[in-house]
């Protein structure tokens, strides 16, 4: 996973996103060759081998989620089909990732802090961190600053559904809240109760 958020400006991000969109239409997502290996879909009885399998799946899931701007992965996705079909199954070799295997991969990802169970207290759905909450915090602050939103009160809705698409469009609320909490720790944001729910005010850090 490329962690480039500290240097990524909003402009560059949207260029990247546009490129990805174009790529997706022209080339689609480029699956790694291990995805064509039949045993990749089986939960390995040898723990050392299974660790490698989980590591490879983690990489694949995060890069695909980043590519398609997906935030959630659920055990059901291996059962019913949907956004994740391209990754969770390979029709060419007639293999699919069984839900039980996906469930243990998700547990592995949560253990490595590249995902968290969302909502909490269940293990069938995770929020994916193809950007860590710390990185989202930077993206958020950068976006607020470059779009001139400093010191004004914004609703969460204005962030997740802005008139002009941003890297934060459709960001799930739990993730947004985590990012704001991180900014609040360094006095760069403050959560504010407003009439119809919650809002946030961003500050320029004191130099």
């Amino acid at each position: 996973m490329a962690l480039s958020t500290h240097t990524t400006s909003t402009g560059w991000d949207s260029v990247l996103k546009a490129c990805n969109k174009v790529n997706e239409h022209i080339l689609g997502f480029l699956l790694p060759s291990i995805h064509s290996a039949p045993p990749f879909f089986t939960q390995q009885p040898n723990p050392a081998t299974e660790a490698i399998v989980i590591e490879q799946w983690t990489k694949l899931i995060l890069s695909y989620a980043r590519h398609r701007n997906l935030f959630y992965l659920r055990v059901e996705d291996a059962e019913t089909g949907g956004d994740w079909d391209e990754v969770l199954r390979n029709d060419r070799i007639n293999r699919r990732l069984p839900p039980a295997h996906l469930s243990s991969i998700l547990a592995g990802m949560v253990a490595k802090n590249v995902a968290s169970y969302e909502p909490a207290k269940q293990t069938r759905s995770v929020l994916l961190y193809w950007r860590l909450p710390e990185e989202w915090a930077e993206v958020l602050h950068q976006w607020a600053s470059t779009t001139g939103q400093m010191n004004t009160i914004m609703t969460f809705y204005e962030i997740t559904d802005p008139p002009v698409n941003s890297p934060l469009t459709n960001i799930p609320l739990p993730l947004l809240r985590k990012a704001i909490t991180i900014l609040a720790k360094s006095n760069r944001a403050q959560i504010i109760a407003i009439a119809d729910g919650e809002g946030v005010r961003f500050f320029t850090p004191a130099k």
């Binding site: 045993p39 879909f41 089986t42 009885p45 081998t49 293999r95």
Partner: peptide, 15 residues
Amino acid sequence: MLLRDGLCWLDDQDE
């Protein structure tokens, strides 16, 4: 080879 040596991987969906 599978369990002791880790020289191969299992595929339990073999047609």
